[in-house]
Amino acid sequence: MECKRIEEILSPYIEDELSAQEKQMVEEHLKKCPKCVSLLSFMREVKTNLEGLPEIEVSDNLLSRLYNIPKKKKKILLNLNFLLRPSVQPILAAATVILIMISLYMFNPDKNLINNSLNRRVHQGYNSCEKLYAKAESLTDSLSGYKSSALSSLKNIELFGENED
């Protein structure tokens, strides 16, 4: 059996997990290979020394930090709980939409084009309003004129034929 193959099964050999046949093959190889014998010895040392590594105690400072985890969580939750109320949700949704629109505007590479377009539309709107106002004024004047004519026509109506005599 080659050294490479032996290396792959040294751990189960140490833990006595090989079949009788595999175990015999390993032992046959070890009789003629000092390199693998040495490697086996070091592997046993590694296992023994790792098993012997002691556990270290947790410091009081760390224990205190761990005990306080729920208190820290509670503080954060208390401050933000109002955001979970149903009545606040539409406001949050509207605020989100507005923030997204503002972000799209603020970080748009064609911001100047947008500004110019908005300015044009505002001025167009203003001009339209001015024209409408002017039209409304002339309509008011026309209506006043009709009102005067209507009133004077009404005054001249002969209700009981007075002018025939």
């Binding site: 792959e8 040294l10 751990s11 040495s38 490697l39 070091f42 592997m43 040392e45 590694v46 790792l50």
Partner: peptide, 17 residues
Amino acid sequence: VKSRINRGRLSLAKILK
């Protein structure tokens, strides 16, 4: 798992050696 542990022990053994 067994293969990884074997490789780990082998590596450590070679380093130690």
